[in-house]
């Protein structure tokens, strides 16, 4: 049944990308999925999320072009499904430090 459905969907496939990036290496995988595919389907189809070097990827937040999305969100053609790593810096202490530097300068 599924194979048949996939066959019938041949004409309505969408092209999406799944991205997981580090400063030194960026993993981008292009996928061709059925029109009804969701974010979860893209992640399941991508090797990136399963890769051993990305073992922690399951805990990463997911978005499309910078906007966080739910896993059941349907995909559109051309979407880029992105896995986001957490920040290293604490924005608040970073801001305090910047303000301190700014004050010293005055």
């Amino acid at each position: 049944m599924q194979a048949r459905a996939a066959f019938l969907n041949v004409r309505s496939m969408i092209e999406v990308q799944v991205v997981l990036a580090w400063p030194a290496e960026q993993m981008i995988q292009s996928l061709s999925l059925p029109e009804s595919a969701t974010v979860a389907d893209a992640l399941a189809a991508a090797n990136i999320a399963k890769d051993s070097t990305a073992g922690e990827a399951a805990s990463f937040k997911v978005g499309i072009f910078g906007r966080l999305v739910e896993l059941d969100q349907p995909l559109n053609d051309g979407d880029r499904v992105e896995l986001y790593r957490p920040l290293i810096a604490d924005p608040k202490s970073s801001r305090r430090r910047r303000v301190a530097i700014e004050r010293r300068r005055r």
């Binding site: 991205v19 990036a21 580090w22 400063p23 960026q26 981008i28 937040k61 978005g63 072009f65 910078g66 906007r67 966080l68 880029r80 992105e82 986001y84 790593r85 957490p86 920040l87 290293i88 924005p91």
Partner: peptide
């Protein structure tokens, strides 16, 4: 050219290529 991957309050990364 959408070369930076990131979302608010999460790490931003440049796709060098």
């Amino acid at each position: 050219v959408d070369a930076i991957v990131g979302a608010p309050k999460l790490m931003h990364t440049v796709i060098a290529a």
